[in-house]
Amino acid sequence: MTAHFVDLLDDLRRRSLRMAQLVEEVVREACEAVFQADVEKAKRVVQRDNDVDAEEVEVESEVIRLLALYQPVGSDLRLLCTVLKVNNDLERIADCAVNVAERARHVDARTLAGPYEDLRQMGPIVVHMLHNAVKAYGSQVVDDAQRVLLEEDAVDALYGQIIRRLVAEASASPAKIAAFLDVLSVAKNLERIADHATNIAEDVVFVCTGEIVRHRMH
């Protein structure tokens, strides 16, 4: 029975990791869609979000089933709790990616060039951060997870810069408010993705050590 349970846990972990990789691709595509004004790519992001939603329900059901039938303890319990939490973060990340991609319909790519270079920088950093969080989730190595936590500050700093610039420019050019709101939406959703990536990294620390490191200064 134990060997069977260990196999089921491994299957679940692989499944959750595949979902994480799918979400990572969705975020990458969303960034490409908005920064290259590629509406077709944006449509694909929305379609793939449906796959993520379906997978989220499947993974959650399996976690509940394993908790009910096997009453795991120790590292098995920590793993199942982590899969459940990461599952939620991944679904929210995909939703944020959809929000980013949907801006591709409205945002003029030229708006995002030049003055909003920091927004362009933010995209790859967030993608990189998520990639490292997923990598840490796969490897379950604390050092990998902690590297992700260190990256969050860079994203927050860029987000702060963008907000300050938007406030200044919106005051000066109120006619462009719709475009500014699009920029704000992209920035806000990228910042949220970085937050969810941080959550995933913190959950990796929990699964490895049993320590809850959320809400601490990194």
């Binding site: 029975m1 134990t2 349970f5 303890v73 120790g74 590292s75 319990l77 920590r78 050590t209 049993g210």
Partner: peptide, 17 residues
């Protein structure tokens, strides 16, 4: 003991490994 045991043998025992 049942959430984060300190010893690997405890961990292996409580998780049935």
């Amino acid at each position: 003991i049942f959430t984060k045991p300190g010893n690997k043998r405890t961990q292996d025992y409580i998780t049935g490994r």
